[in-house]
Design a protein around this nucleic acid. Structure first.
Lengths: 232, 232
DNA sequence: GTCTATAAACCGATAGAC
DNA sequence: GTCTATCGGTTTATAGAC
């Protein structure tokens, strides 16, 4: 779309980075097969040959894009978890961390520190059993599930392993759905974007469902919807 | 994959049907862009030119496939709903219908009256905001949501419209996740297919989460995990 | 309706000048 | 590192014999 004629003619190899970002956005939106290297180069404001110069093939570029996104997401998840999960985890702390996690994850699909197409790309890869599924499993799916399960176990020590796993899938499924089915949901809601009001009700609902099901709704640590700062 | 040389050489125009089925399976598995008409024709045991003869273009074939799948799914949903939802709906009937619906939907992803790629194709379409999103909305997404919301309302008359909608998304999200993330889940479970045991625990969990959250768990109609036949 | 042969466009990838 | 030009292959779609 952007008619960038020759921007930055003497630029160094940040062309590589621009290509990754452009390719990622297109792959996330249209998939691998429906995206051509010409589209990628055009969107990145680079030459067609640049793709094969910086990456040796389109497939390799795809792999590199996934690697890049996984790296970004892993870094963000690490700092986020370190931020909301204290080192020594008491039960009430775990409950609060769970609450914050749900809020974070849902909001990561609308306005987060990461571009929105990151999650879309990963979702697409997960559904299409491509060869990049392995790194995604090891660096995203499994760690995310593990982190969620640890939190659940800390919040509800009485849970069995199987119950914990099922809960992790239930929570993840509810959250992912709002990204996966974004278009239909927005269409039925007659909105162009998820509104803050809508997101707040979604977070409240999933939290309520989860905590009620886990028997954690005895602690009304409900924040009065006022406060803002959330430093540790 | 199947090396079907010329099967049914003197067949009539059920070639059209075979093309739709083959195309649907390939589109569902690899997506539109990664599927060629040659692949489709080969899998259908038809000639390459047959695609453009029966449908005028690959895109039109895609549209026809989606139409076909939507028709099948609509028909099945109608009879299924008529089967499990009595005409005049009492509250306990709604609760039981909800239970059966959850069971049905989850099992539709493993062994149902419909081929498994049907749901996959629709999921793929939903994520890719293609031009076929509109018919999918009208014939699948909206009616499914509406049916679920009606059941929820009948089971819990005290629910507001917004709460009902959120619950519909929560239930759908949990269920769809086991189809959407089938590969990662099976990989982590070290299984090749969802086992009956696993599906039973998933159904039990989602049912428990839902009914507990809705305050419907006062009716311990719990089946004693023994029985086998489940005719009406 | 089914087939072969082929057209016309596009694809990913490369060679070579700068 | 970036560009133009182009190769070789594959794609969708069509023309025409049967």
């Amino acid at each position: 779309m952007g008619r960038r004629p020759k921007l930055l003619p003497d630029s160094n190899d940040d062309t590589r980075q621009r290509l990754i970002l452009a390719a990622g956005e297109l792959f996330a939106e249209k998939g691998f097969g429906d995206t051509s290297v010409r589209d990628i180069a055009r969107m990145a404001g680079a030459n067609v040959a640049a793709v094969n110069y910086h990456f040796t093939s389109k497939e390799n570029l795809y792999l590199e894009v996934v690697r890049f996104v996984l790296g970004q997401m892993t870094a963000v998840r690490r700092t986020a978890m370190a931020d909301i999960v204290p080192a020594a985890l008491t039960q009430p702390q775990a409950v609060e961390a769970l609450r914050v996690l749900i809020d974070r994850e849902i909001r990561s699909y609308v306005s987060s520190d990461l571009p929105r197409w990151y999650a879309r790309l990963i979702l697409r890869c997960i559904m299409s059993k491509s060869p990049v599924l392995d790194p995604i499993m090891e660096q995203a799916f499994r760690p995310n599930r593990q982190a969620l399960m640890s939190l659940l176990k800390a919040a509800c020590p009485h849970l069995s392993d199987e119950e914990t796993r099922l809960w992790a899938y239930s929570i993840t499924g509810q959250i992912v759905f709002y990204n996966f089915a974004r278009e239909p949901i927005l269409l039925l809601a007659r909105e162009k974007e998820y509104t803050e009001k809508f997101l707040r009700s979604v977070v409240a609902h999933i939290t309520r469902v989860t905590f009620s099901g886990l028997g954690l709704d005895k602690h009304p640590v409900r924040r009065p919807k006022k406060q803002a700062g959330k430093k540790s």
